[in-house]
Amino acid sequence: MISNGDIVLRLLTAAALGSFIGFERERLLWSAGIRTHMLVCVGACLFMIVSAYGFQHATEMEHVTLDPSRIAAQVVSGVGFLGAGAILLRGNIVRGLTTAASIWAVAALGLAAGGGLYFAAGAATVIILVILAGMKPLEDAYRTRL
């Protein structure tokens, strides 16, 4: 079993990483902002902690086998519903795909933090921020040329 301090560290790491992504979305006034991204990231982190450590006592029972990856897999599916809620269809224009993708990516950050993969979660956060903030000016420049 992991310590209470490690649990708090993992949850706070998830909250911080989710807030970075959420702030980037918030500054552009998108529907899912800081709080949404933080909640998804912390929730996914907690699911991972529960999945990996919450049933350790059951593994000591005879004829019991557990697969901790099952809960993580369900997080991926469940977050898809949140993402679908962020996607709007207005006439022939679809909006919110990037926000939905960022919610999905933040869930993955939470799973990584919950699994104690701090470097992977931190590196992915930087990459996601580069994609969201750094690619937007390039995308806009390309579109104005068309």
Rank of each mutant, 00 (worst) to 15 (best):
M1R: 12
M1P: 11
I2Y: 13
I2K: 09
I2V: 15
S3T: 14
G5C: 01
D6L: 15
D6C: 05
D6I: 14
I7K: 08
I7V: 15
I7H: 01
V8R: 03
V8E: 00
V8W: 05
R10G: 01
R10S: 09
L11Y: 04
L12M: 12
T13F: 03
A14W: 03
A16R: 01
L17C: 03
L17M: 12
G18S: 02
G18L: 07
S19Q: 00
F20V: 04
I21F: 01
G22W: 03
F23Y: 13
E24V: 01
R25A: 04
E26P: 04
E26M: 03
E26F: 09
E26W: 13
R27S: 11
L29G: 04
L29D: 15
W30C: 00
S31P: 14
S31T: 13
A32M: 06
G33V: 09
I34W: 06
R35E: 03
H37I: 03
L39H: 01
L39K: 04
V40F: 02
V40Q: 02
G43N: 06
C45I: 06
C45D: 08
C45M: 09
A52L: 15
G54L: 11
G54W: 07
G54M: 12
Q56M: 11
A58P: 05
M61S: 13
H63I: 01
T65D: 08
D67P: 09
P68K: 04
P68M: 10
P68D: 07
S69I: 14
R70C: 04
I71E: 00
A72H: 07
A72L: 12
A73M: 11
S77A: 15
G78W: 08
G78H: 12
G78S: 12
V79T: 06
G80D: 05
F81E: 05
F81N: 04
L82M: 15
L82H: 06
L82V: 07
G83K: 10
G83E: 08
A86F: 07
I87T: 10
L88G: 04
L89H: 12
L89C: 03
R90V: 11
G91P: 10
N92G: 00
N92P: 00
V94T: 14
V94P: 02
R95H: 15
R95N: 11
T98R: 00
T98W: 03
T99N: 07
T99I: 10
T99F: 07
T99W: 06
A100Q: 07
S102D: 02
S102C: 13
S102H: 02
I103C: 07
A105I: 11
V106L: 09
A107M: 10
A108W: 01
A108D: 08
L109W: 06
G110M: 07
G110S: 13
L111A: 10
G114V: 05
L117Q: 13
Y118L: 14
F119I: 15
A120P: 00
G122W: 02
A123V: 14
A123L: 15
A124D: 05
A124E: 04
T125K: 03
T125G: 02
L129P: 00
A133N: 03
K136V: 05
K136Q: 14
P137M: 08
P137R: 05
E139N: 07
E139I: 06
D140K: 14
D140C: 01
D140G: 02
Y142R: 09
T144H: 12
R145V: 11
